Computed example of a mutant assay.
Amino acid sequence: MTHSSIIFEYPLNEKMRNWLRVEYLLQQLVASKNAHSPEACLLFLRTLTELLDIFERNELRADLLKELERQQSKLQQWLIVPDIDTQAVHCLIDELSAHGQKMNTVPKFGSTFKEDRFIGQIRQRLSIPGGYCNFDTPTLHLWQHLPIEKRQAQLDHWYAGLEPLHLSLQTLLHLIRQSGRFNELQAHQGFFQNAAEDKNLLRILLSSDDEIYPQVSGHKARFSIRFFPLENDDRVPEILPFQLACC
């Protein structure tokens, strides 16, 4: 992948859709875990409330545990392949097993935050546009004026409860992404379609210099991609080269 390339991803089932959203929010959580910046702290709290909404609607832990077991079974089959690096495979199996054991010991995702009075108050106000002004949330205003060390310790504590989820999800999504190779393809008049039997994820590699983006529709059996220019007055080339990985 060159510096001018960009990867677009599209989930082919609801489970992958949720995982990608959680991954994105966890990445934001880590990036905003900085008590020195009031803006970063606010982003952390907003992101945390979005994660809690997802946790309440989905059985993330059960799905992740099933996938950890499934990936371990797949790796066990790799051990009989000739010339395979068995040490690397065993290390990966051990890593997945450790994630599974850790996930089994932590409470249901989001459950500990329900008992946090401060998070509960903030969560109610963050759903309202501008609802986190200091006159709406005096507790937040006070918290933002606590010593930096105390705020940082609190941010670290909140994230620590989600770290097993983050590490497990990182490993699983990495394996899923690595399961599909990029192939050179062409879209004709901005359109491409194909089959993707029993796949979870599409990854589309384009040159960012072209300022073209894909819109995907499909499910686990078949999908179609339409390409559009970023600017309305631009056009997509009649034959557009791109790369596609079905994972």
Rank of each mutant, 00 (worst) to 15 (best):
Q28W: 10
M103K: 04
F182E: 03
Q152L: 14
R181N: 06
L175K: 02
D198K: 15
E238D: 13
A62R: 10
E163N: 12
I225W: 01
D83W: 11
L42Y: 10
D234V: 10
K108E: 11
Y10S: 05
S179K: 06
A40I: 07
P38W: 05
D63S: 08
P38C: 06
L68C: 04
L20G: 03
K150N: 08
L96V: 14
D156S: 08
D136T: 11
I204P: 00
Q243P: 01
H174I: 06
W143Y: 14
H174A: 11
F135W: 09
E67R: 12
L240I: 10
F227K: 01
L146I: 09
F227C: 02
H174W: 10
A88E: 15
L172R: 01
E56F: 09
L79Y: 11
C41A: 06
L201E: 00
P229T: 12
H145D: 07
D116P: 04
E9R: 07
N13R: 01
D85G: 08
H174P: 01
G161M: 06
W78P: 01
L65I: 11
R181V: 02
E67T: 12
F44Y: 07
F242K: 01
F228S: 09
K74Y: 10
M1N: 13
P138C: 07
W19Q: 00
S127T: 15
D198N: 15
I128V: 14
L43Y: 08
I122T: 05
L43I: 13
Q144V: 07
L240T: 03
D63K: 03
L60T: 05
L140W: 02
G190L: 05
N18Y: 01
L172N: 00
N200D: 04
H174T: 14
L96P: 03
L206N: 02
L140T: 03
R177F: 02
I93H: 07
W158V: 04
Y159N: 05
A221H: 14
E56P: 02
L25W: 07
L185Q: 05
A98I: 12
L173S: 01
E184I: 09
F223G: 01
R203G: 02
R61N: 06
E69V: 13
